[in-house]
Design a protein around this nucleic acid. Structure first.
Lengths: 223, 223
DNA sequence: GATTGAAAGAATGTCTGACAATCTGGTTGA
DNA sequence: TCAACCAGATTGTCAGACATTCTTTCAATC
């Protein structure tokens, strides 16, 4: 292994910051599904020029966070339950695999970080801040994915994260869902901590099955 | 179900065409790994303005087809064997699942298309055109993925396609690899045609194991 | 009254030109 | 030999402009 510690300090460019600001806005539900994003408005609000904004929008489009239709411009996509199902199925493939690998590979330090994120989620779960819950849950899984030994699994999962978070936000607002999530995530954590690959897979699977059911309930209720 | 026949004709914008031209160039190996893509040159060659080109580059960056480092500009990424391994592992997750689902779900028409693509690959396999081989193989899998009943699997796989094709190009140039690929792909096809989910999964798995070994051989040989 | 048509207004797609910040490579001096 | 420095090249960013394409409104027609 070459210890290529990549010391390149990356200066934050306007386009990067624009992407991040917009991503954050989308995550926190600032834009309604189907809403149109008018370039000139965003330019004014973000204080960037149109070319920079448009580059940022292209990045977000490729992440499937927004949709850009020629001559109509960018807008928030509307997620269907069909798509949600498909995403949950792919999550099963990725997260079960990641949890299983993680149980074998994770280091002590990272395990401690995982525990910390679990505790953070416990805090968030009993609070009223739905955004905080979503972010804490995302962090928990981010650590698992970062330590599964396969950067591509992580990359792919990150590509789905926006939409995952969207559904997470919905289902977490259900009565009691955050608490059951906490229980399920604790099981995942314990299996990983014990280095038990099979149990980790099982726990991840169970968590996803329930999360999916909760998301469905939230979606039907919300619709 | 709402039969939303989406009749919106999408006018091809300069941006889109630029993305496609560049993608094609990358696929056909026009740029060496690590090569830098100078904006002004590309503008001149493609006949588009810098803003349009830069938008296109952002799209390609998000697809991981190119890398953009602040203040250094876009360049072709260099793929490591570690990354290749990770990609093959994710391919296993996705393609095995897709092949299995496809065996249950595919329609007669699509099955015919799959057979046609297999025949096309047979042609390509005995030719000398490595690009044609790669494209034919990609087409075969594209049909399987499009008929697995999960658009997200397809989407994710497409996100990896560029890099998959890259390795495919390398390994297909190995003596005899195209022929064994043909055999393995035929097995996948037959299992799907028979509607045998288990066999399809097994065949897909076997194909991937061998493809991975071939890629490794090609990489070591090439390095 | 509902539908069609036209026209105004808004928004996007694209280009040109510009300039500061940054990187790169080679030259100079110690 | 090595470090500092300088010039050219390249990128990041902006402003402004204009043609094209929606959208919406309003009037005219059936």
């Amino acid at each position: 292994m070459k210890p290529v510690l990549n010391l390149r300090i990356s200066p934050r460019t306007v386009q990067q910051e624009t992407v991040e600001k917009l991503r954050q806005a989308i995550f926190s539900g600032l834009f309604q599904p189907g809403a149109r994003l008018v370039e000139s408005q965003l330019c004014a609000e973000l204080g960037v020029s149109r070319p920079s904004l448009r580059e940022a929008l292209r990045s977000l489009e490729a992440e499937r966070l927004i949709e850009i239709i020629p001559n109509r411009g960018p807008s928030m996509p509307t997620l269907t339950w069909e798509e949600a199902t498909a995403i949950y199925e792919v999550r099963e493939l990725l997260e079960i695999e990641a949890a299983g690998r993680c149980a074998k590979l994770i280091t002590k330090e990272k395990l401690a970080a995982l525990e910390a994120s679990l505790i953070a989620f416990r805090e968030a779960a009993s609070s009223d801040d739905s955004y905080a819950r979503v972010m804490a849950a995302a962090e928990f899984y981010a650590i698992i994915l970062a330590n599964c030994g396969n950067p591509i699994i992580e990359e792919v999962h990150r590509g789905l994260l926006a939409r995952i978070s969207f559904f997470r936000g919905r289902s977490m607002s259900l009565e009691g869902r955050a608490q059951s999530s906490l229980v399920e995530m604790t099981q995942i954590y314990e299996a990983i901590a014990a280095g038990d690959e099979k149990a980790a897979r099982k726990a991840a699977h169970r968590h996803l099955v329930r999360a999916k059911a909760a998301a469905k309930a939230a979606m039907e209720q919300g619709a």
